[in-house]
């Protein structure tokens, strides 16, 4: 495992380095909490890493109704934003679900998205909140809805030389994120469910992690909910629909059957958490 490390200070320099490198011979290093495991295991063997830690993307700002998160902002900095628990309770809970405090001091939101893990705790809530990603590459900047970026585990639609620069999240939608895992701390979720509610129809967004191959929205479940405060029968039908439709598989963390039972329970709890909360906040 011998590679050289480049730590460019400007986005232009990072993109040039990335675009000039032969494909497969270069990896992008953000927080490294996942990539370094792949390097140790020999799953990738690049001759060069391009570290993003010195780029000016460790930023967090509010713009109109959006929270604009720099791609290399450590998750711990996002978690410490005093307004996050109130503005985006689902995102706050999801960030706290990632690894441990020490891990979140290095792990970044851009890295979590770009790794596109099926078990990501952040992707479900970002999907439910209709987050968008800003990309920067050799041919300029563009913005994509998050689902257009995610292809599968470690696979995105980023073109050669392209990087995620920012993540844009609409704020002030009540949201919740619930997960189940073997150990509460520093473990990977077997199932993660995010729900968010808009002010107008279509009201509900529901997204799942712990699925295969990548976290997804569940449109048929969203359609069933179809009211700001759905009735018990509606929630029950939505829970059964989620159990039926979710793209679960059996893997080392849980069986498909367990996940289907679990998602019905978590969906009921998550919808009640949001529907029972006043506008703009939830548990």
């Amino acid at each position: 495992m011998a590679f050289s490390l480049a730590s460019p200070r400007t986005p232009a320099a990072a993109i040039r380095l990335l675009a000039d490198a032969p494909r497969g011979d270069v990896e992008v290093l953000a927080g490294g909490t996942d990539l370094l495991l792949d390097l140790d295991a020999g799953r990738v063997a690049p001759s060069r890493l391009i570290a993003l830690g010195r780029l000016p993307w460790r930023t967090l700002r509010r713009s109109g109704g959006d929270l604009v998160i720099g791609a290399t902002l450590p998750l711990a900095d996002l978690e410490r934003d005093p307004r996050l628990p109130r503005d985006l309770p689902g995102l706050f809970r999801a960030v706290r679900a990632v690894g441990s405090v020490a891990l979140r001091h290095r792990a970044t939101i851009g890295g979590n998205i770009a790794r596109a893990s099926p078990a990501s705790d952040l992707l479900p809530v970002l999907l439910a909140l209709d987050a968008r990603v800003r990309l920067l590459g050799p041919s300029g900047a563009r913005e994509l809805p998050l689902p257009a970026l995610l292809r599968g585990p470690r696979e995105t639609s980023l073109t050669p030389g392209e990087l995620i620069s920012h993540v844009v999240v609409p704020v002030r939608r009540p949201s919740a994120y619930l997960w189940q895992r073997v150990r509460p701390s520093n473990d990977i979720s077997q199932v993660g469910i995010a729900v968010a509610r808009r002010e107008r129809a279509p009201y509900w967004a529901v997204a799942l992690g712990g699925v295969w191959p990548v976290p997804v929205r569940l449109p048929s479940v969203e359609t069933i909910l179809d009211a700001p405060v759905p009735g018990d029968a509606q929630v029950e039908r939505a829970a059964q629909e989620a159990a039926l439709r979710a793209p679960f598989v059996t893997d080392k963390r849980a069986t498909e059957t367990y996940r289907r039972r679990l998602v019905a329970i978590l969906l009921r709890r998550a919808v009640h958490a949001v529907a029972g909360a006043p506008q703009g906040r939830s548990r």
């Binding site: 490390l5 490294g32 909490t33 370094l36 020490a102 290095r106």
Partner: peptide, 11 residues
Amino acid sequence: STLSCLTLTHE
């Protein structure tokens, strides 16, 4: 607090 096993010295 930082996990030194997941941090490159040069970083």
